[in-house]
Design a binder for these strands. Structure first.
Length: 134
DNA sequence: GCAATGACGCTCT
DNA sequence: CAGAGCGCCATTG
């Protein structure tokens, strides 16, 4: 194997997504131990030749839409597979992330009290860019 | 080892 | 809400 760390971890994380649920690339990256490695997740999935038990179709981008791929037919396939799992798409081809997003840790014992909507305080407020010219 | 790529994400305009 | 730009990170040439 060329490498059995990052990719393996990513596949593992993707395999954790329950049926009828979806996860974003960034989320999978985080679960796989690669924060901000959303692109790597997509890269790893692209390298995935076959299913191999990895539900790649359950991984979508943060916009709740299927990421554009070189082969448009795969996009339709992914959408069809998600629909067959009970997921509904909007006229624009987008789904409700708030409704279908997989919650790592919630697959086991239910977590009734825990809104944990978004604790992303951004540990790196480097926002020094501020291209606010003039 | 450096430069380019890429199934992404966030912020600003 | 939609579009455009920069940033991230690992793999490949």
């Amino acid at each position: 194997m060329i490498s059995d760390s990052t990719y393996q971890r990513i596949y593992r994380a993707v395999a954790r997504i329950p049926r009828g649920r979806v996860a974003t690339y960034g989320q999978i990256a985080e679960v796989a131990g690669i924060p901000r490695g959303a692109r790597q997740v997509g890269y790893a999935l692209a390298a995935l030749r076959q299913d191999k038990g990895v539900p790649w179709h359950r991984v979508i981008n943060a916009r709740g839409e299927i990421s554009a791929r070189a082969e448009p037919e795969f996009e339709g396939l992914q959408r069809a597979m998600l629909q067959s799992e009970g997921i509904r798409f909007d006229p624009q081809g987008r789904l409700s992330l708030e409704r279908y997003r997989w919650r790592p840790g919630s697959d086991g014992p239910a977590k009734p009290s825990k809104p944990v909507v978004r604790s992303k305080s951004r540990a790196r407020p480097l926002r020094a860019a501020a291209p606010k010219r003039h």
